[in-house]
Design a protein around this nucleic acid. Structure first.
Lengths: 196, 196
DNA sequence: AATTGACATCCAACTATTTGGTTGGTTTGG
DNA sequence: CCAAACCAACCAAATAGTTGGATGTCAATT
């Protein structure tokens, strides 16, 4: 029923596509290169996924699921958590790049595969809310969003960072990290203070 | 010496290219469409700019200069300023999209045209530093970067925002705005407190 | 004032190449 | 022997970039 391990081919294609799309986006990504990277014939892309667009979606779904587990979990120390998130993006910007391509491709509209129920971040929201002593509601969700943004922004927009600070955010990694942690702590501090 | 107003053609091309690239990026942007949008022959793109890549750079340079003047100037009220920045991006995401395409295209490396001297944000850094009572140095620059990030993040990453909050950041504009302003004030508050 | 030469602007049509997607046949495991 | 997986070769459409000639503008010349 499953001759010649098709699922392995599928996985190799997904990984190759993940790298290719992270680098070049959906318009710039080349099916030929993906097939070559995967060591598989080009036709297999269409056999498994149907089209370039569908392959792109499949990559995003897979990567988002992976990210749900690979992203550090927040503890008592909000700044420390945001620092770890910063580190993980810095070590491997694949995720951040894919999400930027996704955003640019689908614009403000929901991506066709998005299910609102699939909240990969629910545990993060709960953990942050507990640490901050607030309810895990919309407000907490938005705070998590902004904390993730504070960590990702200098990596997502290195040109802006460079123009503002005059330094390269990659060679200047340590001090950027310290700054990011401080911003996160400032936000956490402010929420805590409002609780009183 | 300048028959048949070439500079007008050039300007029309730049504006058409700005819109096209903001929508589709450099790989997805089509020279034919740009020429058509501008109401000009395709060859004029090459006459004026040489290549697609050069046209993209020309657009970025132009847009960054425009942004330097169109971006609100910070006053006493940091939150209010960040709120206005949020509004301007929300009303017209062209700038934010172009900078995302730029970042993805050139990666961490400096874009070939970047001049470190051209600090379009110097006045913003000075104004923010004054309001916060700190020196207009690296630290102040990084703070401005993060404040701009806080304003732009929900617009740059609507998918993330939606997945986290379960709401559409575009229809949910007002409360997102309030949140962004609060984050900015939290950061400002924290800096001020440290001054004591 | 009219003519003309020089030159820059502009365009329709063309080209070489790339690219997403397809097809027809071959291999492989059950 | 059958169905699914696989592949080499192929195709039509799209696309960045080019070419050769036409058209408009200015300035020098008559």
């Amino acid at each position: 029923m499953v001759p010649r391990d098709a699922s392995a081919t599928r996985r190799k294609l997904l990984e190759a596509a993940r790298d290719e799309f992270a680098e070049h986006g959906i318009s710039g990504g080349r099916i030929d290169r993906i097939a070559e990277r995967a060591g598989v014939n080009k036709e297999r892309v269409y056999g498994h996924f149907g089209s370039k667009e569908e392959l792109f979606k499949a990559v995003l779904i897979r990567v988002k699921n992976e990210q749900a587990v690979s992203l550090p979990t927040p503890g008592e120390d909000i700044g420390g958590w945001v620092g770890r998130v910063y580190d993980s993006h810095m070590d491997d910007p694949t995720m951040i790049r894919l999400m930027m391509w996704e955003s640019l491709h689908y614009g403000g509209d929901p991506a066709p595969y998005e299910e609102p129920e699939a909240d990969h971040y629910a545990d993060k929201i709960i953990a942050v809310a507990r640490t901050l002593g607030i309810e895990p509601d919309d407000r907490a969700a938005r705070i998590v969003m902004s904390l993730l943004g504070v960590a990702a922004w200098p990596i997502a927009m290195p040109q802006t960072a460079r123009m503002l600070t005059g330094r390269d955010p990659y060679t200047d990694r340590e001090s950027t990290r310290e700054h990011v942690v401080r911003m996160a702590n400032a936000i956490a501090q402010d929420i805590r203070r409002q609780q009183e």
